[in-house]
Design a binder for these strands. Structure first.
Length: 665
RNA sequence: UGGCCUAUGGUGUAACUGGUAACACGUUUGUUUUUGGUACAAAAGAGUAUAGGUUCGAGACCUAUUGGGCCAACCA
């Protein structure tokens, strides 16, 4: 399509470069390598979208590889769930493979390394080894077993495999460099003894390879050309390459690891461990609870694969940390559902409406369009009668001119039906409205500002509607070092509503998606059946009326501001300099006061470099002048540099600068 | 007292080998509308972390700072 001018992300640029440097397009191959220790979540969709997206773009194969090297945490249940989720997203993998498929090859290569003197058996406790490892700022030291003979290493390793040792007694380490600046290169562990049953290899092995030893070699075995992962693996790249160096055949494809920034979504957590905690502690009903950011949760909530793929694409790929607003996800799902979801009517919070001039026993089946965005969706019939439900929110006895809904003496259109006028209300003893009395008019051609949805009471079907709010009340629940993420759990994330829906919904099936007109998008929950209809609210409609109404819950924590206040005073002052000379008078006064306050925490050494600021950058020179004034006031002696700076400013053509200079000269 | 990564509107991503910043979301306004939805139109919002330098010209190149992130599991 319009690919020609499309700008490439940095990974695509790397691939294009490799292609122009002689890599054959046929050799392009990718992989998505989840560990089967939990369910996939929205964060994974980025990694999936990148690798599988590349596969689609270049028409190259993509393997689905389960990185199952730790039998203590991995289960078949997760393998099945992951396959289901990836397939549901609409991606097709070339091969389904497992790291455990390569256990024998990995073992053989390990022996090769031992023979080359590049690996040895260490027999210390993990504490002793950790101590020798040093810290990021301190080099490590060699351990006592580092120079064991090849023969002894071979013998010990064979006996490890044979199950002669208990967990923790011996491990196999690569022999690299205990003083390396990269801690991962300080003789990393390749194999440990683990007497656990593996979900695929059962008890065939009692030694298991570590991630670093496994990953690059697996990529190489599969001849993956580009191995894409998230940024936290950047430090592993050196080791990835080192392990590859030991076994690589130059005539074959040598995989390249490249890293991108992972996806962060506001108000949600992405850690599998923490997600598991929500499940285990019963905060949610399971991995597929519609409030969960898991793919299965989103699916149950009513999200479409299209919407999620669109979202991932829109988010883009780069290397800087990001925090994506949930509103973008919501936009993507609305956009998709708007095109495909049939429109129906449902009342969630009912109040009775009586049409006094409509015959008691009359029922009309009125024509209703199924989807204005899609004429081929056709139409259906809905029943209209004397007694209806409308939303409580859609009626007010007295209201201003901005209220387009029903008020006493006012007129409104009932969607797909007639125009009505409210004449009277009936209230109970405590003043609640129990009935609104109206008259209707069959002249529907008139133009009327408001249109309401409704259901006929006699025909309405009862249904349970589950409305969800965000699971956490904080924008970044798991990034507070002193506060546990569980304290931000929103106690009101689920609201169960007894609603009334139009009769055509009686036959709806699990998974069906609808737009409840004027309310939002809903789908039929997995728990639903014909006798007990249950809907999930996927997402509300965009609601400009809600913005007009006064709100209380929208004060977002201003992250940027918080960060800014932690910056050194001089940095904050500098950022004022950029715009100072362009500010409105009032703003400028405020800024000036702020600068004077900040300047109290600034030393002369901080300020001095700014004296050299280019002439054209008047703003910076002004804020420097103001800060200098504060310093002089608190006892700083004038020196030659200061005098020169002031003298030069006095001759400047910027009036503000001259003014500030005069003030302190 | 280390290494690596990173810094562009409120958010996310762009900007071909240097030519003063684009797209999407969000925000605001208007038009259309039997959904306060959708669609359409428009507006506001960034001197590209800071300072210095190279250059006729720097978001891009150089230098020095300053934020932020990652790295010490027999996890992946």
């Amino acid at each position: 399509m319009s690919e020609a001018k499309r700008s490439l992300n940095f990974i695509e640029q790397i691939i294009e470069e490799d292609l122009t440097n002689g890599l054959s397009k046929d050799n392009l191959r990718f992989r998505f390598p989840p560990e089967p220790n939990g369910y996939l979540h929205i964060g994974h969709t980025k990694a999936i979208g990148i690798s599988f997206g590349l596969g689609e773009y270049y028409n190259a194969p993509v393997n689905l590889r389960f990185d199952d090297t730790n039998p203590a945490k991995e289960e078949q249940e997760y393998v099945d769930a992951i396959k289901k989720d990836v397939a549901w997203l609409g991606y097709k993998w070339e091969k389904e493979v497992f790291s455990s498929d390569y256990f024998q090859q990995l073992y053989d290569w390990a022996i090769l390394l031992i023979n080359k003197g590049k690996a040895y058996i260490d027999s210390q406790t993990s504490e002793a080894m950790a101590e020798q490892k040093g810290t990021p700022t301190q080099p490590g030291v060699d351990g006592p077993y580092r120079n064991r003979s090849v023969k002894e290493n071979l013998d010990l390793f064979a006996r490890m495999k044979a199950g002669e040792f208990n967990e923790g007694e011996h491990i196999l380490r690569a022999k690299i460099d205990m003083k390396h600046v990269n801690m991962l290169m300080r003789d990393p562990i390749m194999y440990r003894v683990l007497k656990k049953e593996h979900h695929r290899t059962a008890n065939d092995w009692c030694i298991y390879p570590m991630y670093d030893w496994t990953h690059g070699e697996s990529d190489y075995i599969e001849q993956i050309s580009h191995s894409l992962c998230s940024l936290e693996f950047k430090p592993h790249r050196a080791l990835y390459d080192w392990f590859l160096d030991q076994v690589v055949d130059p005539s074959k494809i040598r995989p390249k690891q490249r890293e991108f920034a992972r996806l962060n979504l506001s108000y949600t957590i992405m850690s599998k461990r923490k997600l598991l905690k929500l499940v285990n502690e019963g905060i949610v009903k399971g991995w597929d609870d519609p409030r969960m950011p898991t793919i299965s949760g989103l699916r149950r909530r009513g999200y479409t694969p299209n919407a999620i793929r669109k979202f991932v694409h829109t988010v883009g790929v780069a290397k800087r940390d990001n925090m994506i607003d949930v509103s973008l996800l919501e936009f993507c799902i609305r956009e998709d559902l708007n095109k495909i979801a049939p429109r129906v009517m449902a009342v969630l919070n009912p109040v009775k409406l009586l049409i006094t001039n409509y015959p008691d026993d009359k029922v009309e089946w009125l024509e209703a369009e199924n989807n204005p965005e899609d004429v081929s969706a056709g139409s259906r019939k809905i029943p209209f009668s004397r007694e209806l439900y409308i939303e409580k929110d859609d009626f007010k006895e007295i209201a201003g001119s901005k209220f387009f809904r029903l008020k006493l003496g006012g007129e409104v259109r009932l969607k797909n039906a007639y125009i009505i006028k409210a004449n009277n209300v009936v209230k109970d003893s405590s003043g609640n409205i129990t009935e609104i009395q109206c008259t209707y008019s069959e002249d529907t051609a008139r133009s009327i500002k408001g249109t309401l949805h409704w259901v006929s009471i006699a025909h309405a079907v009862k249904a349970e509607v589950r409305e969800y709010d965000r699971l956490f009340t904080d924008e970044t629940p798991d990034s507070h070092q002193d506060i546990d993420f569980m304290t931000f759990v929103n106690p009101n994330s689920l609201k169960t509503i007894n609603a009334f829906v139009e009769p055509s919904l009686k036959e709806s099936q699990v998974g069906d998606r609808f737009q409840f007109q004027r309310l939002g998008y809903f789908n039929v929950d997995d728990d639903s059946n014909t006798n007990n209809l249950i809907f999930n609210k996927t997402v509300g409609l965009r609601d400009t009326w809600a913005k007009i109404k006064p709100q209380q819950n929208t004060n977002k924590p201003q992250k940027k501001q918080v960060q800014q206040s932690k910056r050194p005073a001089i940095e904050q002052i500098k950022s004022y300099g950029k715009k100072y000379d362009r500010m409105q008078d009032e703003q400028r006064e405020k800024a000036k006061a702020e600068i004077k306050e900040l300047a109290k925490n600034v030393s002369y050494e901080d300020l001095e470099p700014l004296f050299g600021t280019a002439v054209k950058k008047a703003g910076t020179r002004i804020i420097t002048m103001i800060s200098l004034g504060v310093l002089l006031n608190s006892g700083l002696e004038k020196n030659e540099d200061i005098s020169n700076f002031i003298a030069k400013a006095l001759e400047d053509k910027n009036a503000l600068l001259v003014e500030e200079a005069k003030a302190i000269s």
